[in-house]
Simulated scan of single mutants.
Amino acid sequence: MASTAYVPELTFAEGHSDAINVLAFSSDGSYLASGSDDETVIIWKTLKGTFLYRITMRSKVDSLIWHPLREGTVIVGCENGTVSQVHNLSVMSSETHPINLGVKSHIYCMDYAPTTQLLAAAVGPHVYLTRETTPNTYAGIVMLPNPPVDAVATEESRERPVALKFDSTGTNLVVTHMTRGVFCCDVETQNILWHIKPPGTYPTMAYSAISQNFRRIAVHNFKDGVHLYAMGANGSPRPRLCKFEAEPRYLLALQVAFIHNGDAVVCGSSTGNVCIWQTSTGELYQTLTHPGQSTSLHDNDRP
């Protein structure tokens, strides 16, 4: 961990007119893409916070990733079930290529494996896979099986995948479910390789992230902080808790990410602050405050 604390540098303002649901940096960090309930994606230049392009969708944007193989290309998932690959951005226009998954339901999260050119998308309660066969063209659709439900658990209408991440080989996919836990699936055989069950006192999982070295997974626990697990841990391992400094105001699903090559984990909060913890100890490293900012509730972010 660097000894220097983070300080405010830029405010990206006057862009969206409604709640921002997803943020994604390009691979080199030069650009930031933001997706919003105002049915647009905005591309920003990160060095100066400059507004570059606005991409208009026809539904609220809830998932967004940069294509790892095609420069200047984003893949956008919307509430109405549409998935689009957008590239050749300019002030006047852009090219949009629809990706047909064979079903139409809320697109909650996505990931793309550059080694196998597979796109994974959480569509409603299921995960679908499709392969990019030629630039901007996808073919073949597979639905992965959901992990089993414990006898003590009950089926919930809101049960769904909340995070997806391929490993470096692109042959295994780690899926975080809201109430079923985290499981790793072999995408070829569809066998479940390992499964982390939610802790008994934390039955609901929100967004998750995997460290760059693929050794740890961080899961927002929908209550008081972030749980850290060792990758591949099976059954009901005891996680390390990175606890929020203040009690949450609301039960919101909060996004989480690893920084500093996995030495730290960062997560927002319902109080409007951002917390950074050291992964080796779980101790709070810094709180980034956002005075004057309020937190609104998004229906899909409630447990």
Rank of each mutant, 00 (worst) to 15 (best):
E71K: 12
P8M: 03
I43N: 03
L193W: 07
P135H: 09
A153H: 11
M205W: 09
A230H: 09
H195Q: 00
H177P: 00
G272M: 08
V274A: 15
P203C: 07
I65M: 11
T130H: 12
S59I: 08
A122F: 15
D301H: 10
N273L: 10
I107G: 00
L89R: 12
E156P: 01
F166I: 01
G232W: 06
L129M: 07
G282Q: 01
T56M: 08
A233S: 15
N136I: 03
H87G: 01
T130P: 08
V41R: 02
Q117K: 13
V103T: 02
A264F: 04
E188C: 02
H260V: 03
A113V: 11
P291M: 02
P148M: 06
V83I: 13
A163Y: 12
E247Q: 15
E155M: 09
G49M: 05
W44N: 00
P291E: 12
D28S: 06
P147K: 05
S93K: 12
D186F: 02
I107K: 03
A257M: 09
G268I: 14
V123F: 10
S30R: 14
L23E: 04
C267P: 12
T96W: 11
D224Q: 08
Y6D: 00
T96Y: 06
T46G: 05
N172D: 08
G268H: 09
L52A: 00
T169I: 07
A209T: 08
L119R: 07
P8D: 07
T130S: 11
L69S: 13
R240K: 13
A33T: 06
Q117T: 10
F51M: 08
T137I: 07
F166N: 07
P199A: 10
C185E: 06
L47Q: 13
V175I: 15
L101M: 11
D150S: 13
R180K: 14
N88E: 15
E71D: 13
N273F: 09
R54I: 15
V41Y: 14
A121K: 06
G272C: 10
Q278S: 01
E132T: 15
F214C: 02
P161I: 13
K165T: 15
V123K: 13
E155S: 05
S208Y: 08
A5P: 10
E283Q: 06
A257G: 09
V61P: 10
E156C: 04
T176N: 13
A206K: 09
D167Y: 01
P239D: 00
I141L: 07
Y207Q: 11
A253Q: 03
V265A: 14
V61Q: 12
Y202K: 11
L164I: 03
L241S: 05
M205K: 03
S26A: 15
D28E: 05
A264P: 02
E283W: 02
M110R: 12
L32Q: 03
S3Y: 04
V83N: 00
G140V: 06
S30G: 08
V265D: 05
G81M: 00
G272P: 00
Y128A: 03
G292T: 09
T4L: 14
D186V: 08
